[in-house]
Design a protein around this nucleic acid. Structure first.
Lengths: 114, 114
DNA sequence: CAAAGATACATAGAATTACGATGTATTGCA
DNA sequence: TGCAATACATCGTAATTCTATGTATCTTTG
């Protein structure tokens, strides 16, 4: 729905934030959650999601538990302490950025019910 | 200051918005204006700005007046009617996107004095 | 019960966009 | 006089997401 460039830089923050709220989640579940939270406006593609998760693992921000569901595998991701810190940093950065961009574009406050 | 990825997709909108408010502006002036409005947080680089302006011209969203200031040239950009429409579209998209991302990240409303 | 759609993972290459580096030149100021 | 600021420009690089493709299982429905 949105020009895909707008999403750039937000994917990692979104994943970290969701993991911070859910103990553990698997990839497909994360994509569905974002879809629902955004009213179908943000559709994370598999080609973005899985490489992003692998990167988080590589950077030590998440740990993985692989679970067998019948004959299918499911990889659960959880935040590490390092990931928790990274999450806070990322969220702060985005919060600041959003405030700045709203100011530059002289937007009125957007009332949000979280 | 921000991870440069966050800025992606916003540059064109910022330029169009400023031009909509100023009749005409030149490149360097736009960069300074954004710097000031953002409290030095968004620093548009020349390598981004000039190609972006050329693209807008190519797409018929702006017109150019070249003016000689002493021995130096200055290119003033103005919104065309087509640019005015594009501006509205871009701004709406960003407004919607910001609301969505705030919802997904469950941010409280950011009070903004525009 | 077969087919279609949803679940669930993965990767490789393409597209987009901003930036860094570099270049040229004039103007203002300490 | 020399450095910073003004003012334009281009080229190649980096970063990130997407499209396309692949594999496989499970569930729902006509």
């Amino acid at each position: 729905m949105y020009s895909k460039e707008l999403l750039k830089g937000t994917l990692t923050a979104i994943i970290l934030k969701l993991l911070a709220e859910h103990d553990r989640m698997y990839g497909y579940q994360i994509a569905q959650k974002v879809k629902k939270l955004s009213d179908n406006k943000i559709l994370i593609k598999e080609g973005s999601l899985y490489p992003a998760l692998h990167k988080l693992k590589e950077d030590g921000l998440v740990s993985i538990e692989t679970v067998n569901i019948g004959k299918r595998i499911r990889r659960y991701y959880s935040l590490t302490p390092k990931g928790e810190i990274a999450k806070n940093d990322k969220i702060s950065e985005i919060e600041d950025f959003l405030a700045t961009i709203m100011k530059v574009l002289s937007f009125k406050p957007l009332i949000q019910f979280a």
